[in-house]
C-alpha cells in the first residue's frame, strides 16, 4: 500500500503541491487526474522518491521512503515499474536490449531465460517482432509499448504510468488502455495512472484522484465521479467528455 501524507512541494518558492494526502490500495488501479501543470507528474515522482518533498511523507508498504538510505530506497524502487511520458527508452540500445536491461542488471538469469522473458514481455504488449529495432525506428505508440514491456519485465508489484496515452491517436490510445487493463489483471499489480485523458480513466480506473491547482481536490470511485456535484471536477470531466465525444453522465 502507498500512503501520501500532507505532501508539500515547491520549486524556487513556487508551490506546486499543497497538502496532498492520498492512499493507494493494494491491487487497485488509481487514476491521478488534473489539468496540465496541476502537479500530477510531480506527485508521481514523489511516489518513487525521484523528488524529495518540501514537507510531508510518502510511505510504501509502511516505510517512509524519505527517511531511508539511498540503497534502501533503490531496493523499494525495484518493486516499481514506471512507464515515463516519452517512454524514456535507452536510445543506444535496440528494443530487445531495452527490455532485457533490467533482467541483465538485477537478475542472474541465463541468456536463454532472458531471451524467453523478453519475448514474453514483447508478446504481452503485442509487439513480438520489434526486438531488433532502435527506439528511433519506432512510432510514439510503439515506443510506449516497448517501454511498458521494459517496465513489467521484473514483474513489479506497482506499475506507474505517466501520461500513457498523451500524443497518441485515439486507436493507439485504446490499445494502450486495453494493455494497462490486461496487465493489471494478469499481474495483479497495483496501477497508478497519471493522466488528463478521461477516456482512459473511464476505461481502466477503479478510483480517481483529482488534483486541482496543487491540491488534492477530490478522490473517489468512478461511479462517485459520475454522481459528484463538485463544480470543478464536473467542469474538468465535461471538458474531456466534450473533447472525446462521450455523452455526459450528469
Amino acid at each position: 500500500m502507498i500512503q501520501i501524507e500532507n505532501l508539500y512541494k515547491s520549486f524556487n518558492d513556487k508551490p506546486v503541491l499543497k497538502d496532498v494526502s492520498l492512499e493507494i490500495q493494494e491491487g487497485e488501479t488509481l487514476a491521478i487526474i488534473g489539468r496540465s501543470g496541476s502537479g500530477k507528474s510531480v506527485l508521481m515522482k514523489h511516489i518513487i522518491g525521484l523528488l524529495k518533498p518540501t514537507s510531508g511523507r510518502v510511505f510504501v508498504d509502511g516505510t517512509d521512503i524519505n527517511k531511508i538510505s539511498y540503497n534502501q530506497l533503490r531496493e523499494i524502487r525495484r518493486q516499481f515499474g514506471v512507464l515515463f511520458q516519452g517512454g524514456a527508452l535507452f536510445d543506444s540500445l535496440d528494443s530487445f536490449e531495452n527490455v532485457a536491461f533490467p533482467l541483465r542488471t538485477f537478475t542472474k538469469m541465463s541468456e536463454a531465460e532472458i531471451r524467453s522473458e523478453v519475448q514474453h514481455c514483447l508478446n504481452m504488449v503485442q509487439l513480438p517482432d520489434v526486438g531488433t529495432k532502435k527506439p528511433s525506428e519506432l512510432s510514439g505508440g510503439m515506443q510506449k509499448r516497448v517501454a511498458l514491456a521494459r517496465a513489467i519485465s521484473l514483474k513489479p508489484r506497482y506499475i506507474i504510468y505517466d501520461e500513457p496515452t498523451s500524443g497518441l491517436d485515439p486507436e493507439t490510445s485504446n490499445t494502450i488502455d486495453e494493455l494497462i487493463s490486461d496487465l493489471s489483471n494478469q499481474m495483479n499489480a497495483t496501477s497508478i495512472v497519471v493522466t488528463h485523458d478521461m477516456h482512459s480513466v473511464l476505461s481502466i480506473a477503479d478510483r480517481a484522484a483529482f488534483i486541482h491547482q496543487g491540491n488534492m481536490h477530490w478522490v473517489g470511485t468512478i461511479d462517485d465521479m459520475h454522481r459528484s456535484d463538485d463544480a470543478t471536477l464536473r467542469a474538468f470531466v465535461k471538458a474531456n467528455e466534450y473533447q472525446i465525444g462521450i455523452p455526459s453522465h450528469a
Partner: peptide, 18 residues
C-alpha cells in the same frame, strides 16, 4: 544531457539503479 531531458536518467533511477 539528452538522457536527462528525455527522462532516461529518471528511468535508470526508477529501476533501482545508481
Amino acid at each position: 544531457g539528452t538522457m536527462r531531458v528525455t527522462e532516461q536518467i529518471d528511468a535508470l533511477e526508477a529501476m533501482g539503479l545508481n
